[in-house]
Amino acid sequence: MRYGQLVIGPAGSGKSTYCHMIQQHCETIHRTVYVVNMDPAAEHFDYPVIADIRELVQVTDVMEDEELNFGPNGGLVFCMEFFLQNIEWLEEKLGDSEDDYILFDCPGQIELYTHIPAMRQFADVLKSWNFNICSVFLLDCHFIVDATKMFSGIMTALSSMILLELPHINILSKIDLLSSKAKKSLDKYLDPDPHDLLDEVSAHVDPKYQKLNKAISSLINDYSFVQFLPLDISDEGSKDNVLLQIDMTIQYGEDLDVNTKAMDGADDQD
């Protein structure tokens, strides 16, 4: 069994930073995590990757190609379709060693999930390669300034969730950039009391949506997994928590041998 995270989210939500951070964090706790760049339009990233889709196809090349003459979006769709046709390339790159843990840094455009089944197919292929995967949806916490924005974020997360049909984790990124006051005001949305949330939303939107507000807030209440986990990259505890939640979701570590070396090390210190 192998393990993987599909890292998704809108452009600029911090997907690449997240991958980099998780990789470094795992290094410090003696775990090996690999990263694969899946975004053919990626600019730069400062982490080592075991595979980069841009080696196969690059969106700027497609856009500049005289015959194809695509805009940025058409170019991306073309790249993803081309990638799926040449999926063996990735299979070769990934190898087949057991217990690998791989992060897939995916492109953010929602169109790739809704209009063409590219990402869905990719997820299915990974499953067939004996991967246990989950989708990790990142959202920039700066947009969650009040309850209506929280609702909005939840709806966006849900829309990619139902398309991928994978176990799903929502993360609010960039918490470390907030002022302490903003952090405090964010807290109430992380573990929301549905009634408070409902009251606040009702003040903001047209009264005719009252029933819709109620329906969504009961959705939040009934299904705790539409909640967001905060991720503060300056805080080790926050990273641990996020990683733990994801590991539990993909059942990583359930059949691992006990790391005796680390335990011996701990004993030595005592």
Partner: peptide, 23 residues
């Protein structure tokens, strides 16, 4: 493109998200 019910629903969720975002 929305003849597929999953796509339709995802689109609707997005629309709903924008509704709340802008009010």
């Amino acid at each position: 493109r929305s003849v597929n019910p999953t796509t339709f629903m995802s689109n609707m969720l997005n629309a709903c998200s924008i509704l709340y975002k802008t009010t």
